[in-house]
Nucleic acid binder design. Structure first.
Length: 849
RNA sequence: GCGGAUAUGGCGGAACUGGCAGACGCGCUAGGUUCAGGUCCUAGUGAUCGCAAGGUCGUGGAGGUUCGAGUCCUCUUAUCCGCACCA
């Protein structure tokens, strides 16, 4: 760069403010957008293809955190990109606003949950507007308001009618901190999902359940269809559903035992090993155990002990490592295949809530059974020979256990000689034929317990009448309103039970006195269908209009954290399948494509109050502006990876925005310029070329990988290119039309990611049209093409030279150019050329000896 | 134990179909501008040997395929995440 030109770069006049002032620009556009509430509204009668982009709705905790900002920045960028590409975009937002934190806050601050929640919503909505997210607020959904939760109640009634909502007394998960029941999905490693250090207790309670297990097979099978979902999430759901095909087999105890019966039904996936079953193991809580030990005090005490051990291990989240321990009941049960009586044990590692709570123990072919048999000296009998082994050698010195499926049966009566797979089929069939067993499928997935002994949730619309028993609230009486002014404590028991005006009602059937159900629904009910409500948020006749849902669904792109991979996303899928069955929707799945963004971390750790590494979005917006905050959250890492927040990084973004801004200020253009007639100067051509290359790169990233970090890099490169041509620009070598195109394109490319700034730039180019709906720039391959390209020349794979050839040079021309290069010649002097590989437009490799 | 992912400069990351490793940003160094300072502009910045020209090494590790490997194959290590005596 010539010395005399350097003043160009600092055209500072003390009286001219060429500083990029984010606050001024952003406030200006907020005011404008505020005056046009329909700006982001989805079209009611569209003539365009639809696109439904959705970010998971937040819990209104009081303030947005950086994870939200990242989530919404991704979604907003996508929504804006789709708007610019002519789609009818649905981009709504709402509030998952029931839940325990509101009650905790109520206790702490003596503020009613409703007040606290609605205040938080107002504050967070203001933050979202300040950040410039483009939501259709006319469709806002607030789940804690009766116009929404009445439809939770309506759905509950539909489930009830269909026999899919039922009440059952059972062992349930209880969090003492929350003072309520938790669903299985809300127990993480034996701990409460909200209280990571609080072990979940088991309590026997009468609860409402939704029969999600009815859809277990379909939920599993349809994971196949979800090719737009991350593999990880599909695998997690698959594991959660935990389908296991096996056989139920009855072991007869011989004679009457007690109320629980006289047979033990075991579940096994390996019936082929049943000739090696040398004992039966029962879960300590198996009902038949009581009958077996009832007469023996000592045994009873030992079983109690096993129950306690198991419970302790479960609560410590350590059931997987429990030291195996059991007691012999003194009883024997008949193996129906061999006819022999095998001892019946009770063992602490057998789980009552999986399978039947009873197993046949095959020490030779199961690691756990082997370990147990060794400890208690139980018989170990080999009945499978691994296919790859030498039979005699193996039988002489077996290295047990053989758990392989790839083997053949031995010592198994008429089934000997069969492969494991064939034996499973044959033996299951035999069991069914003889009536002592049958093939079956078990799932790890359990029905969804939705009762919560809490106040701040949807009242369950059921009534208990002394005369008529359980009576559903009629549809016409919905909503059952959650009363205000309810004293909230964590004392246990449902707070609503202490509100006589709520509790006492009349029976819808007989008109006599009755009591309402006082438990409320799990908040995951709210989020299981909220996205349908967005399609018809004002409807007071139905949760939504089927035709509207049919237009918008499935969600084209759903974006949120992976922590919902099981809970929310499995419940929503279940809900959709139920809605399909009652004719409300046509889609089989709610979400076509799912994106799980990474966490925002700081100094290598998740942001948390206790570590003190929280970065507040408000502070970032105040210091750097919303655009810089959003842009940095897209730039610092690809969206699916964790993002380590670095303040110096966002400063770099701010610098970049300043550079762009000054380029616009320094080069005001006349919009009415004509295209130049003369050929472009090399400098102008370079800008134009880079411009079109950038359009391609940014467009490709938006359509494919969503690597917004590389989109932004590409735009930075473009701006750097323009800066390096600044002398030529100042010297008039770049026609105004090229500068104008560059400026317009930069505004358009930045529009999805930095909306305030892009709108300001757009206006600076003299545009008055709405940037939100301005057409996305078109890439012109001819303009992006290079005239000349640099071809690396390798000798034996090592870089030895560079040649410049015309972009359309033939293979032979490239080869000749490479062989004519001085450095190359020096390097191959005295050597024999074996062959020359020319990859057009890429490189030359000379193989020599 | 099972399953999923990740590993590239001082840092965040790029290299999408095998073809110049380290784009872009941060940080750092030097020069300039402004100057109270921040700002702003320019140049440099993987390691290493060399005064230089230039060379050598280099994408967690070990092998392999190939003219050519961060990218493909085999094995392996570490870290993160999910599930877990699931019978």
């Amino acid at each position: 760069m010539p010395q005399e030109d350097k003043t160009i770069f600092t055209p500072r006049d003390e009286h001219t403010d060429d500083r990029y002032d984010a606050q001024r620009i952003e406030q200006k556009w907020i005011a404008r957008w505020q005056s046009d509430p329909s700006l982001y509204a989805a079209e009611a009668h569209p003539t365009k293809p639809k696109y439904y982009v959705l970010e998971m709705l937040p819990y209104p905790s009081g303030a947005l955190h950086m994870g939200h900002v990242r989530n919404y920045s991704i979604g907003d960028a996508l929504a804006r990109y789709m708007w610019m590409n002519g789609y009818n975009v649905l981009h709504p937002m709402g509030w998952d606003s029931f839940g325990l934190p509101a009650e905790n806050a109520a206790i702490k601050n003596n503020t009613p949950p409703k007040e606290w929640t609605l205040g938080n919503i107002a504050a967070m909505k203001a933050q979202m507007k300040r950040l410039g997210f483009g939501y259709d607020w006319s469709r806002e959904v607030t789940t804690c308001l009766p116009d929404y939760y009445r439809w939770n109640q309506w759905f509950f009634l539909k489930f009830y009618e269909a026999g899919l909502a039922y009440r059952k007394k059972s062992k349930v998960n209880w969090c003492p901190q929350c003072a309520t029941v938790l669903a299985n999905e809300q127990v993480v490693g034996g701990m409460c999902w909200r209280h990571e250090d609080t072990p979940v207790e088991q309590r026997e309670l009468e609860q409402w359940f939704l029969r999600i297990t009815k859809y277990a097979d379909e939920l599993l099978r349809d994971l196949e269809k979800l090719q737009g979902w991350p593999e990880k999430v599909r695998v997690m759901q698959q594991n959660w559903i935990g389908r296991s095909a096996g056989t139920l087999v009855d072991f007869d105890l011989g004679g009457t035992v007690g109320p629980a019966g006289s047979t033990i039904t075991v579940f096994t996936t390996r019936i082929d090993t049943i000739f090696g079953a040398t004992s039966v193991q029962l879960a300590p809580e198996h009902p038949i155990v009581r009958d077996l030990v009832v007469r023996n005090h000592e045994l009873r005490a030992q079983v109690e002990n096993l129950i306690a051990e198991q419970r302790r291990a479960k609560e410590a989240g350590d059931i997987g490592n429990i030291e195996k321990h059991g007691v012999f009941t003194g009883r024997y049960a008949k193996n129906p295949f061999t006819g022999e009586a095998v001892p019946v044990w009770v063992a602490n590692y057998i789980l009552m809530d999986y399978g039947t709570g009873a197993i046949m123990s095959v020490p030779a072919h199961d690691e756990r059974d082997y370990e147990f048999a060794q400890k208690y000296n139980l018989e170990i009998r080999v009945v499978i020979l691994p296919a790859s082994s030498d039979p005699e050698e193996t039988m002489a010195e077996p290295e047990l256990p053989f758990t392989t499926m790839d083997g053949i049966l031995v010592n198994s009566g008429e089934f000997s000689g069969l492969s494991c797979a064939d034996a499973i089929a044959a033996m299951s069939a035999r069991a069914a034929e003889k009536g002592f067993g049958k093939a079956t499928v078990t799932f790890r997935l359990k029905d969804w317990g939705i009762s919560r002994q809490r106040y701040w949730g949807t009242p369950i619309p059921m009534v208990y009448c002394d005369k008529d028993g359980l009576v559903p609230v009629p549809e016409k009486d919905l909503p059952v309103i959650l009363p205000d002014n309810v004293p909230v404590t964590l004392a246990g028991g449902s707070p609503l039970a202490g509100v006589p005006s709520f509790l006492n009602t009349t029976c819808p059937k007989c008109g006599g006195p009755a009591r309402r159900e006082t438990d409320t629904m799990d908040t995951f009910v709210d989020s299981s269908w909220y996205f349908y409500r967005y399609t018809d948020a004002q409807n007071d006749k139905a949760p939504f209009d089927s035709a509207k849902a049919a237009y918008w669904f499935p969600i084209d792109q759903y974006i949120g954290g992976v922590e919902h991979a099981i809970l929310h996303l499995i419940y929503s899928r279940f809900w959709t399948k139920f809605m399909r069955d009652i004719g409300l929707v046509k889609n089989e799945e709610p979400v076509a494509r799912l994106f799980t963004q990474g966490m925002v971390i700081k100094d290598g750790a998740k942001m948390s109050k206790s570590i003190g590494n929280i970065v507040s979005p408000d502070e970032m917006v105040e210091r750097y502006g919303a655009d810089a905050t959003r842009l940095y959250s897209l730039f610092a890492a690809p969206p699916d990876r964790d993002l380590d927040w670095q303040e110096s990084g966002i400063e770099g973004i701010q610098r970049f925005l300043g550079r762009v801004y000054r380029f616009f200020l320094r080069n005001p253009v006349n919009r009415d310029v004509n295209a130049p007639t003369a050929p472009l100067s090399p400098a102008a051509r370079a800008i134009q070329r880079k411009l079109h290359q950038t359009i391609k790169r940014v467009s490709d990233d938006f359509q494919g990988r969503w690597h917004f970090n590389t989109c932004i890099s590409a735009i930075m490169e473009l701006v750097n290119e323009i800066y390096s041509a600044e002398v030529a620009i100042a010297g008039g070598q770049v026609p105004a039309s090229v500068i104008l195109e560059a400026q317009r394109t930069i505004a358009l490319l930045l529009a999805p990611m930095a909306p305030f700034f892009a709108h300001e730039l757009w206006e600076m180019t003299g545009e008055t049209s709405n940037l939100l709906k301005a057409p996305w720039p078109k890439y012109d391959a001819a303009l992006a093409a290079e005239d000349e390209i640099e071809i690396p020349v390798q000798i034996n794979g090592k870089l030895r030279g560079l040649v410049i050839v015309s972009a359309d040079a033939t293979e032979d021309q490239i080869k000749q150019a490479a062989l004519a290069d001085d450095k190359v010649n020096a390097a191959i002097a005295g050597k024999q050329i074996v062959k020359v590989i020319v990859v057009p437009k890429k490189l030359v490799n000379i193989v020599s000896r």
